[in-house]
């Protein structure tokens, strides 16, 4: 049995009077691909936002790498090895692909402001050593040809890929993907699925992903958790979830 990387227990998140998440618990094992599915507004993105500290749940606990916290902070999450991509692309539009991916390594760079101002010592050596790391990621995701293009000029599918590159550049232990294939055509989806599987296989990165395409989810993931109206509906392997009556009702509409 693989060890637990992340456990969320009894998470409740409210915005004013609206409950986005109610008493949700599940865990993510090291090295697995964990899917979070559910209809629109089920609280999937909110869940990711809680995990990496952007939202602060009112109740519940998050245990990550054996450390239990009431809530995460974004900086803490990032420095502890949680990286993510976003539902609506959140790239730095004015920067080149290379610079975008380089920002992914910001936490690994240690040079002081003075060294950077004079571009000597660690500032210089870091720029070069991290550049070669970043180039590995760029090779891996096959975006070599566009490395100096401003991301604002790239087509949607490539932007999604650059965003994944930026997250990978941080060499995360836990990678959160918020609808990595939304709005893609079949070919792009296949590419992205291949990359996700390769990341998981080659780097051993644990992945939690939100996805609407059930085919993709069932193919990719080891285990699936289903949310509906902010509550957990089901949890288990794709087969188990697929045959769960509550899930079928939520997706197809209950026939009473």
């Amino acid at each position: 049995m693989a060890e637990n990387l992340l456990t969320v227990e009894n998470i409740t998140l409210r915005f004013g009077g609206v409950k986005a998440l109610t008493d949700v618990s599940f865990d993510i094992l090291k090295g697995e691909i964990r899917a979070i599915i559910g209809p629109n507004g089920a609280g999937k993105s909110s869940m990711l936002n809680c995990i990496n500290g952007f939202y602060h749940p009112q109740e519940g606990r998050i245990t990550y790498k054996g450390q239990t916290r009431k809530q995460m902070r974004p900086y803490e999450a990032a420095s502890q090895g949680i990286a993510r991509t976003f539902q609506n692309i959140a790239l730095f539009r004015g920067m080149s692909v290379l610079d975008n991916v380089m920002t992914g390594r910001v936490l690994k760079m240690k040079s002081s402001l003075l060294e950077q101002a004079f571009y000597f010592g660690r500032a210089r050596s870091e720029e070069i050593s991290h550049r070669s790391k970043v180039e590995e990621v760029i090779d891996f995701l096959e975006i070599n040809a566009i490395r100096k293009t401003p991301v604002g000029r790239l087509p949607y599918g490539l932007q999604k890929r650059v965003e994944l590159a930026r997250a990978l550049a941080a060499e995360p232990e836990l990678l959160l993907l918020d609808e990595p294939m939304a709005g893609m055509n079949v070919e792009e989806k296949e590419d992205m699925s291949r990359f996700i599987l390769n990341v998981n296989a080659e780097f051993g990165t644990t992945i939690a992903l939100i996805e609407h395409d059930m085919g993709v989810v069932m193919d990719l993931s080891d285990r699936v958790v289903v949310l509906n109206y902010g509550e957990k509906l089901a949890d288990g392997t794709p087969d188990v979830v697929r045959s769960n009556q509550a899930v079928i009702d939520a997706y197809l509409g209950a026939s009473h």
Binding site: N52, A77, A90, L91, F92, D99, T103, L113, Q116
Partner: peptide, 29 residues
């Protein structure tokens, strides 16, 4: 000095904050 700053980590962090501050924060800036 200015050229050095903008091609280093700090310059990229500035631009990240400029282009999308929330994403920058979640990356660890």
């Amino acid at each position: 000095i200015a050229y050095n700053l903008v091609r280093s980590r700090i310059g990229r962090s500035w631009m990240a904050i400029r282009d999308m501050d929330i994403a920058a924060e979640l990356i660890g800036i």
